[in-house]
Design a protein around this nucleic acid. Structure first.
Length: 194
DNA sequence: TGTTGGATCAACT
DNA sequence: GTTGATCCAACAC
């Protein structure tokens, strides 16, 4: 494997969320599990920004669920949805301002056998969707609130440049569909939709 | 190719 | 009691 790269520092996560969302494409997410390491390159992400964004979980104000979004950027935000899936987000911006970026699609680079073991038999694309990505990585609410500048979950800059960044409305929501806050690499088959 | 509904449950109204 | 930042199988064209 080649997992060499520069770990993204706290300062990366304290910038404007839309800037970070675009920058996340091509970055590598690494999760050190008890049974091994899984890693994948981000190819799709969506921004959810502040209490004024009606689609953001923080639109209703602080609750127990969205608590970590109000914390400092550079932490994980995981939540359980539709009774069966988890979604992984990266908290951004300074403490007190609730914002996060949903990781919707990644390209596996290491630990494919662990991802396959976590996924239903026969699944080909294991990580082209937020629910599938979390299932393949084995991410659940137990990983909520983890500091991404630590050693369990972190992001790596391996110098990868996404070939074709496209901006679209966010997926699966009914509010604020006018905002083009979804970013993905159109050249990747691991983007959830085109 | 497109639309529909079931699975399954925590958070919120 | 209702809904949702999902996914997939089963249909209708």
């Amino acid at each position: 494997m080649n997992l060499k790269g520069k770990k993204l520092p706290r300062s990366f996560y304290l910038r404007p969320t839309l800037e970070i969302a675009a920058d996340l494409l091509g970055k590598t997410i690494v999760y050190c599990r008890k049974d091994g390491i899984v890693a994948a390159d981000i190819v799709e992400a969506e921004a959810y920004i502040g209490e004024d964004d009606p689609a953001c979980h923080a639109a209703v104000g602080p609750t127990e669920r969205n608590r970590v979004m109000y914390g400092k950027g550079g932490h994980s935000y995981l939540y359980f949805i539709y009774g069966m899936y988890n979604c992984f987000n990266i908290v951004t911006e300074k403490a007190g301002f609730p914002a996060a970026i949903l990781i919707r699609g990644v390209e596996p680079v290491y630990g494919e056998e662990i991802m396959a073991a976590n996924s239903p038999d026969g699944t080909k694309l294991l990580t082209n969707g937020p629910g599938k990505f979390c299932r393949a990585f084995g991410l659940t609410c137990e990983q909520n609130g983890i500091d991404l500048t630590g050693n369990e979950i972190y992001l790596l800059d391996r110098g990868i440049r996404p070939s074709q960044i496209v901006t679209t409305p966010r997926i699966g929501i009914k509010k604020a569909t006018d905002k083009l806050w979804r970013f993905y690499d159109a050249a990747s088959k691991y983007a959830s939709r085109r």
